[in-house]
Amino acid sequence: MAGTTGSLDVDDPKFRITPTQQMGAACSGALITSLFVTPLDVVKIRLQAQQKALVTNKCFLYCNGLMDHLCTCVSSNGNNSQRHWYQRPSHFNGTLDAFIKIGKNEGVLSLWSGLSPTLVLALPATVVYFVTYEQLRTRLKDWACRDCSNRPQPLWAPLIAGCTARLWAATAVSPLELIRTKMQSKKLSYLEVHEALKSLLQYHGWRGLWKGLGPTLLRDVPFSGIYWVTYEKFKMMNNNKSTFAYSFLGGSIAGSLAAFITTPFDVVKTYRQIEMAEKEILSEPPMLCGASTFSVICNIYKKNGLSGLFTGLVPRVVKVAPACAIMVATFEYGKSFFQQYNMKEYEKHLLNLLRNDLD
């Protein structure tokens, strides 16, 4: 299997992959993406720590290319042997220098520090997202093209499917993310998750499980819509023939464009998420909510101008573009693999029916 669907229609109902097969393709894609992109974020966090951006009892954002995760800094109490990976002392002169020194002085595996806890949420969230997107997109396409199966897919189908899938996935994972962050701040094990849930519900009620979801959706929903419309349009330019290389290029272009357009929302989301964590998650008593999203945008614009709303654009694109490219290319490859399998099974079924008729 060369990773290409040839002349097959990937959405042909006879060969269309099942939700279970979609889950397998998304899961493998998420794992591979995490393995490739995590070192970029580890280096970014170490550079931030060097500039005193990370201090005791504060938060930092960790991302494996698929999802952001709030992590709390834990004091090492001056014990070098117990220093956490983000607190290890060193001096880096840049990104490339950081890669070299971390690999040389701490071992290559240090570049994947913090990967395990993020996979706990990243894998299931990514599976939910991609499976929901595929299910919605194919059904919207079937409905739009019910009178003519040869009609090209309308671009509003991936737009609606992408936005809806991200809305559902982010909403479903938000309570788990808050609970996990609370567990980190109180040093609880996964077996004591009920303690974290009890603490959160005590001060905020059930609605507290979705605190901070607004800023996340403000960035992720538009990003998802822009990304999938761009990617599906790119596929149409190749007559929907999906090779790994073409999917990789399309995912990179779509991810870069979506990251550029939504960077202001990312700046606001990061500001609000960390502020919320420090005031509402890391503290025991309930705290007052911070400024509204609109107020944050206005304050950033007044202080730093338009450039302030695009802070971190370059590192974000550098991280998002390969993450999107690897994820969608791997996902498309998995879809192609399962479709080829379904086609062979369909042919076997037809042969068996033919034999039965002859008998």
Score class of each variant (00 low, 15 high):
83 R>W: 02
180 R>L: 15
324 C>H: 07
22 Q>H: 12
194 H>Q: 15
280 E>C: 15
129 Y>G: 00
120 V>K: 11
358 L>F: 05
153 Q>H: 06
355 R>Y: 09
66 L>A: 04
54 L>N: 10
6 G>P: 06
117 P>G: 08
159 L>Y: 07
277 A>R: 03
100 I>F: 11
96 L>I: 14
339 Q>G: 09
109 L>I: 07
160 I>Y: 08
327 M>F: 15
48 Q>P: 02
198 K>M: 09
353 L>W: 06
29 G>Y: 04
42 V>W: 01
145 C>F: 07
251 G>E: 05
167 L>P: 02
184 Q>W: 06
140 L>D: 01
160 I>V: 15
335 K>G: 02
336 S>W: 04
107 G>S: 07
98 A>I: 03
97 D>N: 09
204 H>L: 07
262 T>N: 03
156 W>T: 11
289 C>L: 05
139 R>Y: 11
216 T>Y: 07
229 V>E: 01
209 L>G: 02
352 N>D: 08
36 F>R: 00
107 G>L: 08
29 G>S: 12
333 Y>R: 08
165 A>S: 15
356 N>F: 07
190 Y>H: 13
150 N>L: 13
129 Y>L: 13
208 G>V: 03
348 K>I: 00
225 G>V: 02
278 E>P: 05
314 V>F: 10
269 K>S: 13
252 S>I: 06
30 A>N: 06
284 E>Y: 15
134 E>C: 03
1 M>H: 09
106 E>S: 08
82 Q>K: 15
5 T>Q: 05
276 M>F: 14
96 L>N: 01
131 V>F: 04
220 D>I: 02
65 G>S: 06
20 T>Y: 11
34 S>Q: 06
324 C>M: 09
324 C>Q: 10
330 T>A: 11
224 S>C: 10
116 S>G: 10
266 D>T: 13
77 N>D: 10
32 I>K: 01
130 F>R: 05
8 L>P: 03
63 C>F: 09
237 M>N: 12
6 G>L: 13
258 A>W: 11
289 C>Q: 08
57 N>V: 00
96 L>C: 04
87 Q>I: 00
4 T>C: 06
157 A>I: 04
93 N>E: 12
320 V>G: 01
194 H>A: 15
72 T>I: 14
